[in-house]
Design a protein around this nucleic acid. Structure first.
Lengths: 342, 342
DNA sequence: ACATCTAATGACAACGTTGTCTTCAAGACG
DNA sequence: CGTCTTGAAGACAACGTTGTCATTAGATGT
């Protein structure tokens, strides 16, 4: 049926080992034979059998672990990882894990135990869970973490961190620069470090400008539309409603935008709204959302690259120093923000 | 390092073949030994080596082929496929293919040739390309197609079709029922059968109501926001602008909504807009979009199931009759449509 | 001219499974 | 009591690769 290395060898008139050598570009095969072998490979449309190769050799799959399948950033990251995998001859195993309780660690260990899998790429909240990290590293599983905020190194594999703190600082600073003082903050699940970091950046910017944070304006919640709508409704019903809302992601911002519409509060004239993520929504809504752009494909690509490097160097016995890498989200000013009306 | 079947056998005091039998739940192993083996497996935390298993046995990956990585339906489908794969002990290989020219067939053949891969799940436009289908079936590659509109059977593998024609008919009928007569149609790329089918359904509904189609109102274009905005702008500048727009997907509808805003045309009072897809945008915009809901996860799940069935029965030598299955998108009425103002 | 080295190639084991065939013992049947 | 059947278990090959070692032949050194 499918051509094997032996078929190629027979056609080329060499031993199958020689074919193996040619395929793997080992030295010490005469040009003469190389040409013959390549021709035979071409002719038979031969492709090495992955299973056999991996049985003998090393695992060549990365596993991408994520939680929220509905968020757009997942597919952006997936795309970046796929690109890097392709470049390195790796394949990708997709693994959504419901971030419920307990069993999730088992589930991850099972994935890691799959003999195809060389390592895991972890996104929040898994990448930020001490339990998960501990369990994985105890079993010698390799992984990269995509994580929010720079942390002191722990020597447990490379990390790609996103500087949410600084981005949130800049966003808040931008709003303050527009004259806003009553700036509400709509957080996401606190299980996600991104929400914590962004809140910290927000607070720091207020402080840097001598603005007293108002606890009525800082509302925890969830990273979704309804949570954004509900909290915004409350905010707008306040006696002294905020003149700007910093939403922890675009979906919350979408909710805020919606609530403002319902209550006929013009955006941005009476209420500036900023999101975070640069999702498709932020480019398609009216008004288009001011938000922070995260280079998700590049982030994920870097995570994949670092993991592959770690895997490779560990195979050669080297103890690779975990080289972290950071990314700065960029403020994208669109039409949902403007100077505070006097 | 990692426990193998032989380690388990040694610990349990049986031959490794017996362990194999236990794992695969073959009959004719005494309860006594079964218990011992399971205990040993537990103790060693043994997991069968996938590569070895596949080397000997059959491929157990499906490959998911898609084009547009930015569209939300891709990840919804991916999710459905993953669920079905999990249920059947299959794994999933993700493969985005740029729908450019020529090489794409080669790229697909290469994926199919991967020894892990049992079959392909094709989405438009690949599933609708005669070239692709022909090339694949000539090489004996198994595949399912997710396709727009019911076609006569061609015996080339199971298909899951989406009845875009009928859905478009219903949408148009609904708009007509609201009193609209000048209904614009904003199409997508004609390479996608969905666009063609939806246009046909639209035309049929007009005809059924004795409305003469107006060629000025039927604008071909692309499945994206800018194309939607641009075409809507033109429509609204017409001497007799339409009172309703049927956009071929939600992204085009988003563009239409945006254009209406810019030109201060109130939606839905002066202009009803309908989308197609039930994307997150349609639930988060203001007003929320009336659209057609496609059960993408279920569609993809079915595609995966049919493919797995075909693969299995072909392994047992049976020639499985290709059992197609159809899905009806459902009209979801939200807030972007209303009766025509008199 | 002879021993020694090196480059090119091949023979064969090994990887961890599953499939096929064989063996063995116990029970059924005449 | 001998033969046949059946169920339980093991021995061993095979899958398609790569790794290790052996073999060959030509080049090099003295």
């Amino acid at each position: 049926m499918k051509a094997t290395i032996k078929d190629v060898a027979k056609l080329a008139g060499v031993s199958f080992k020689t074919v193996s050598r040619v395929i793997n570009r080992e030295p010490s095969v005469s040009e003469d034979l190389q040409a013959k072998v390549w021709k035979a490979i071409e002719e038979l449309n031969y492709q090495p059998n992955m299973s056999a190769r991996q049985l003998r050799g090393a695992a060549s799959f990365l596993a991408f672990i994520y939680d929220n399948p509905n968020s757009h950033y997942v597919i952006e990251m997936q795309h970046g990882i796929l690109a890097e995998c392709k470049r390195n001859g790796f394949e990708l195993l997709i693994h959504p894990v419901s971030s419920g309780e307990g069993e999730r660690v088992d589930e991850l260990l099972q994935v890691a135990n799959n003999s195809h899998v060389a390592g895991l790429i972890l996104t929040p909240p898994f990448s930020e869970s001490q339990d998960v990290i501990k369990a994985l590293s105890e079993r010698g599983v390799m992984f990269t973490r995509i994580i929010s905020g720079e942390r002191e190194p722990d020597g447990l594999g490379p990390r790609v961190y996103i500087d949410d703190y600084r981005a949130a600082f800049k966003i808040t600073q931008y709003l303050i620069g527009l004259g806003h003082r009553e700036i509400a903050f709509l957080g996401g699940e606190e299980e996600h470090l991104s929400s914590v970091e962004r809140l910290a950046g927000y607070r720091a910017a207020l402080k840097a400008n001598n603005i007293e944070p108002d606890s009525h304006l800082i509302l925890p919640g969830e990273y979704n539309f309804d949570s954004g709508t509900e909290r915004s409704r409350k905010l707008l019903n306040l006696d002294e409603p905020p003149t700007a809302i910093f939403a922890c992601n675009d979906e919350i911002a979408a909710g805020a935008l919606f609530a403002a519409r319902i209550q006929q509060v013009p955006v941005p004239q009476a209420l500036s709204i900023v999101g975070f993520e640069d999702s498709p929504f932020s480019r398609q809504s009216w008004p288009k959302l001011t938000t922070a752009h995260q280079p998700n494909p590049a982030i994920a690509e870097t995570a994949a690259r670092l993991l592959i490097e770690t895997v490779r160097s560990s195979r050669q016995g080297e103890e690779k120093p975990a080289a972290d890498q950071g990314f700065q989200p960029q403020l994208v000013v669109r039409d949902s923000t403007c100077p505070r009306s006097s």
